[in-house]
Design a protein around this nucleic acid. Structure first.
Length: 152
DNA sequence: GCCAACGTTGGC
DNA sequence: GCCAACGTTGGC
């Protein structure tokens, strides 16, 4: 099975590509996903898969770099912690509804690919990011991956 | 299981 | 800060 490519959205005010880079080889849990479609994509991720990191809700929304999935989906324990902002009252220790993966910094692009550029490129018109900008985890096709790498 | 109300996201 | 899009909730 070949590796898959994904896109992970984050608000740089909360957690940016630079924050991920600072975590180094230890990587970072990609937690707090509380949307079923996004969760299901998380569960499809395999160790070694790659993910574009996208900065949203900021001055220049853009794909800013690449990360590697270093651990496939496991239960998001934050769902059980009442003090966590990711607490989910409907999750129990036997049935945690939400998942997370671990990712590791791979690359920061010298020239981020802005949402404006993405939207103006016919080759990227089918991207989930363009069609439904709210989905925080989405798949990227091999064609889109190669095309984006050719642009940055 | 329908659907209105409500909350959240995120570009602008 | 506005507002469109859309997911979730809950009454019936």
């Amino acid at each position: 099975m070949s590796l898959s490519i994904w896109l992970l959205k984050t608000e740089p005010n909360e957690f940016s590509i630079d924050d991920l880079k600072a975590k180094g080889a230890h990587g970072e849990p990609w937690d707090g996903i509380r949307n079923y479609q996004a969760r299901n994509f998380l569960r499809d991720m395999k160790e070694g898969d790659l993910a574009f990191i996208y900065h949203s809700a900021c001055e220049t929304p853009a794909i800013v770099g690449l990360a590697t999935i270093i651990r496939s989906a496991y239960p998001d324990q934050n769902a059980l912690k009442p003090t966590s902002k990711y607490f989910d009252e409907k999750s129990t220790p036997d049935n945690i509804r939400w998942s997370m993966v671990d990712i590791q910094f791979k690359q920061k692009f010298a020239n981020p690919l802005t949402l404006k550029q993405i939207k103006s490129d016919p080759a990227l018109a089918d991207m989930k990011l363009v069609k439904s900008s709210r989905l925080s985890v989405s798949p990227v096709s091999a064609f889109e991956y190669e095309h984006i790498l050719g642009l940055i």
